[in-house]
């Protein structure tokens, strides 16, 4: 059984995907019902619940076009670590605008990085995709942020930018 703090964390995860309060609650509720039905199958409840929410969100997305389109990108392998995101500073007033600008998968990556403190490999495991694909997405996300917001709003520190091997 999830306590209040965990439920709120799951709700924030749902929100980071849907960007809508009521949709986030519906997503969490539907996912929780699925979780309860399959509770005995997994040991790591929280990770299992994240996956259920993610799959439920994708299912909902396919059924309902009101969510923004998930872009399909050909990925080239670029060895950027998730820590390169730490080089980004943003004007506090623009964070909502930035989150809205990103696609759900990018927001999911940010959630795991910022809220859960996952490493690139852990994020790749959660997303069930190769680590290289995750790195590529991080790199692309960084570029998109740089292109979308001017230097006054967003600062990408050059000290931590670059290849992290």
């Amino acid at each position: 059984m999830f306590d209040q703090d965990t439920l709120n964390k799951l709700y924030r995860f749902s929100y980071s995907l849907t960007l809508n309060d009521s949709d986030a609650y519906d997503l969490l509720q539907n996912s929780l019902e699925k979780f309860i039905k399959n509770q005995s199958k997994k040991d790591n409840d929280l990770a299992f619940m994240y996956r259920i929410i993610r799959h439920q969100f994708i299912d909902d997305y396919r059924k309902n076009s009101k969510h923004q389109t998930l872009p399909f990108e050909e990925q080239e392998y670029i060895d950027f670590d998730v820590k390169t995101l730490e080089s980004i500073s943003i004007d506090a007033d623009l964070i909502e605008q930035l989150i809205t600008y990103l696609d759900p998968l990018e927001r999911e990556i940010l959630f795991y990085w910022a809220i859960e403190g996952y490493t690139t490999q852990q994020i790749a495991d959660m997303l069930t995709m190769p680590k290289g694909t995750v790195l590529s997405k991080i790199h692309r996300m960084r570029l998109r942020i740089k292109q979308q917001f001017n230097e006054e709003s967003v600062q990408l520190s050059s000290s931590t930018e670059g290849v992290s091997k």
């Binding site: 209040q4 439920l7 509720q29 995101l85 730490e86 500073s89 943003i90 964070i95 959630f111 809220i115």
Partner: peptide
């Protein structure tokens, strides 16, 4: 300007379930 991580954490932490929603989920 704030580090992206702090901004995201602060932004998402403002999102919380209402008491009624919490009761329903519990």
């Amino acid at each position: 300007k704030q580090p992206l991580k702090n901004s995201i954490t602060h932004h998402l932490n403002n999102k919380a379930l209402s008491n009624q929603q919490l009761k329903q989920l519990q």
